[in-house]
C-alpha cells in the first residue's frame, strides 16, 4: 500500500470519527433534562447551581436529595447539582466561573476552601448572580446569605461535648483525632476549636492522624493508635471516611466498650456501629433538610421574595426558620443515638 492511499484512508477515518462525535452529541440532545415547570406559565424559571465540596459522597448526595425535593415542590427551579468528584477546591472555583458565564441565576456554594473560591464568587456577584453559601461559610463579602446548619465552633465543641458526656465528665484518659488530609481546610478549622476544648477537659489529646480520604489508611491508623496508647479512651473521626474507619478499627481490635468513637458522618453509615455500641453518639444535622432549605432560600432570593431585614423565613415543610444577620439558620446540630438513629434515612 502506498503512503498516498494510507493518507486518504486516514482522512476518511478522521471524517468518520468527526461525524460519529457529531452524531453522538446530537443524539444526546433529547436526553438532556428539561427544567421542571410548574403549572403557572408566567412564573420565571430560576436556575440554581448547587455546588457541594465533593460530589459522589453520601453526605452531599443526601443534601442533593433534599434539594431535588424542594425543586420539585417549588416547580420553577432548574436545579444543577455538580461538583468536583475529588474535592479539589480549585475545580469548585472553575465551576463557579463556568456557571456565571452560562447565566445561572443563583449559585449556592459549600466552599471546601473559602479563600480559593473567593475571587470566583466575587466575580459572579459582580455579574449579577445571587451567590449564597450553604453547609460551610465563606468571607461575608463573597456571598449574600449563608444557609447555616452549624458553625465550625458548634461542630468542634459539639463533638468534644458529646465525647465528654458519653464518657462521663470525670473520666480521664487519652483521645486521638483521626482527620482527613493535613491540608483539609474544614477539618483543620474544627481541630482549631477542638484543641482548646479538649485541653479544658480531663481528656488529653495524644496525637492527630492524617490518613487522607483513604478508608484503608483510616482503618490502619486507628488500629495503630489503639495499640500505641494504652490509656486511649476516645477516638474522634472527623470526616465521613475516618469516622467509620475508626469505629471499624475499634471493633476489629476488640476494644469495643473500652475505646469510644464519635465524630461526623451520615446516620446510614454509622447505624451498625451505634447498634453494636462502639459508637454512642453521631454528631450531624439533617442534611436532607439542609439541601431543601438552601433551594428555598435560593428561589426566594432570585424571585425577590426574600425580604431584607426579615427575622424569619418560611421554607415549605420546614416551616419558619430564624434569620440572624445574614445567616439563615437550619437549627441546632443533631446528635444521633441508639434511640433515634433509625428514624433517619440519609
Amino acid at each position: 500500500m502506498t503512503i498516498y492511499t494510507l493518507m486518504k484512508r486516514k482522512l476518511l477515518i478522521l471524517t468518520l470519527t468527526v461525524s460519529a462525535i457529531l452524531l453522538g452529541c446530537s443524539g444526546d440532545k433529547e436526553s438532556k433534562p428539561t427544567p421542571i415547570q410548574g403549572g403557572d406559565n408566567t412564573a420565571k424559571t430560576v436556575t440554581v447551581g448547587l455546588l457541594p465540596k465533593i460530589k459522589g459522597i453520601a453526605y452531599f448526595s443526601s443534601c442533593a436529595e433534599g434539594a431535588r425535593e424542594a425543586a420539585a415542590e417549588l416547580g420553577n427551579i432548574e436545579l444543577i447539582y455538580d461538583g468536583p468528584t475529588d474535592g479539589d477546591p480549585k475545580k469548585q472555583a472553575e465551576m463557579i466561573e463556568s456557571w456565571t458565564v452560562d447565566g445561572v441565576d443563583v449559585i449556592a456554594v459549600s466552599p471546601n476552601a473559602p479563600d480559593v473560591v473567593a475571587n470566583a464568587m466575587k466575580e459572579a456577584m459582580a455579574e449579577g448572580v445571587q451567590v449564597i453559601t450553604w453547609d460551610a461559610d465563606a468571607a461575608a463579602d463573597t456571598r449574600s446569605y449563608f444557609v447555616n446548619q452549624a458553625t465550625a465552633q458548634s461542630i468542634g465543641e459539639g463533638m468534644v461535648n458529646v465525647m465528654i458526656d458519653d464518657l462521663g465528665p470525670d473520666t480521664e484518659g487519652d483521645v486521638v483525632i483521626i482527620s482527613s488530609d493535613a491540608t483539609s481546610a474544614n477539618q483543620n478549622s474544627w481541630i482549631d476549636v477542638m484543641k482548646p476544648a479538649i485541653e479544658n477537659s480531663n481528656l488529653n489529646l495524644a496525637t492527630i492522624k492524617y490518613p487522607g480520604e483513604n478508608a484503608s489508611q483510616a482503618l490502619a491508623d486507628s488500629q495503630d493508635v489503639i495499640k500505641k496508647y494504652p490509656n486511649l479512651i476516645g477516638l474522634f473521626g472527623i470526616s465521613s471516611v475516618s469516622f467509620p474507619g475508626a469505629a471499624e478499627a475499634v471493633e476489629q481490635t476488640g476494644h469495643s466498650g473500652k475505646v469510644l468513637v464519635t465524630g461526623l458522618s451520615t446516620p446510614n453509615d454509622m447505624k451498625k456501629f451505634v447498634h453494636s455500641g462502639t459508637v454512642r453518639s453521631v454528631v450531624l444535622w439533617n442534611t436532607v433538610d439542609l439541601g431543601y432549605l438552601t433551594i428555598y432560600v435560593a428561589e426566594a432570593l432570585a424571585t425577590g421574595k426574600f425580604e431584607k431585614g426579615a427575622t424569619t423565613f418560611t421554607a415549605g415543610r420546614l416551616g419558619e426558620k430564624e434569620i440572624v444577620g445574614d445567616n439563615v439558620l437550619l437549627g441546632d446540630i443533631l446528635v444521633f443515638t441508639k434511640d433515634n438513629i433509625d428514624n433517619y434515612d440519609f
Binding site: E213, N214, A215, S216, L219, V241, Q252
Partner: peptide
C-alpha cells in the same frame, strides 16, 4: 479478600 474488611464500599477506594 481485602475490601470487605472496610466499613463500607465507596468511590474513593484505592486512591494512590
Amino acid at each position: 479478600v481485602d475490601i470487605p474488611r472496610l466499613p463500607k464500599i465507596e468511590a474513593g477506594i484505592g486512591i494512590g
